[in-house]
Amino acid sequence: MDEGRRTPAVVLYRVLVVAVIAGVLILLAVLIFRYSEGAHMNPYEYSIEEFMDVPEELLLWDEASVIELDIAQPAGLAVDAQDRIFVAGAQEVAIWNAEGTAAGRFSTLAPARTIAIGPQGQIFVASVDHVNVYGPDGSHESEWTSLGEGAFISGMAATDDAVYLADAGSKLIWRFDTSGRLLSQIGRPRPSADYHGFLIPSRCFDVAAATDGALWITNPGRLRVEKYSPDGSLDAYWGEPSMGIEGFCGCCNPTHLAVTRQGHVVTSEKGLPRVKVYEPDGSLNTVVAGPRHFAPGTVGLDLAADSMGRVLVLDGGAGLVRIFVRRSEEGKTP
């Protein structure tokens, strides 16, 4: 193939060569910007979209107001007899009155996991393995002994004569009197009686006390709520594993509990963050807030119910206490 011998074949070759090279260069140029253009789908997406919506007829609560929190790592929420609102965090407890105006704060000795208010206004603040008691003015009164190495207190309830600690580490409810003397434990498995105690797959475990003295305790591994007498006997339980609105899903739900003055049980869940109200017999009453109300991945929605029938939700991730009221036109409060 000498230079200068321009047979058609040679010309064709040359055109072909130039075309191929140009094509390759263009391909490469396109390629460099491929990822700034498209290919943005996840073919393996795990979607919970279909469970994000709550039926309108159940969603009968409105977020009436919020309290913006200014404390580090808010973890525990409680309401006292005067409906004052207590939030415990890493370093301090902050207090608001029922209307949401700041009513004081005091610093704590250890990072709080959960908080409860006693009959004489004592403030019980539980850390990972022990409780500190503060007076109504925030002065430190006493420190109870540690529950031991493996303890992880994640919930607490106070009645007139007892304080109940939900210990996710040892999977037990510890019952103390208000002065810190251990009275008994609830939840020790008794296989002979076909009672297997609490199943706690993660650090979610909560207890709430009703005005009649009954205890409501989560059993998150079994996705149910159980009712106990103060003496530790299991009276009833309910709860259905389900992604649907009526049940509990995931491996550890409900995460938190509260009981209203009328005896309804308020539950909160993680995974699909939602807050619901159940009748004492376990039938779903209403939904306070559905998954769309919270940021994705919200966990640890601590709950409280006050004497006005409001439901308070601690949304630590958003730095808020969300206060919900039942819609008035329905004519009844839970």
């Binding site: 795990y46 919970i48 797959p201 993660s202 899903c249 995931g250 491996c251 550890c252 993680k270 995974g271 699909l272 991945g297």
Partner: peptide
């Protein structure tokens, strides 16, 4: 992994 992170440990 998403399922486990969302609902589990």
């Amino acid at each position: 992994v998403t399922g486990c992170n969302t609902f589990g440990n």
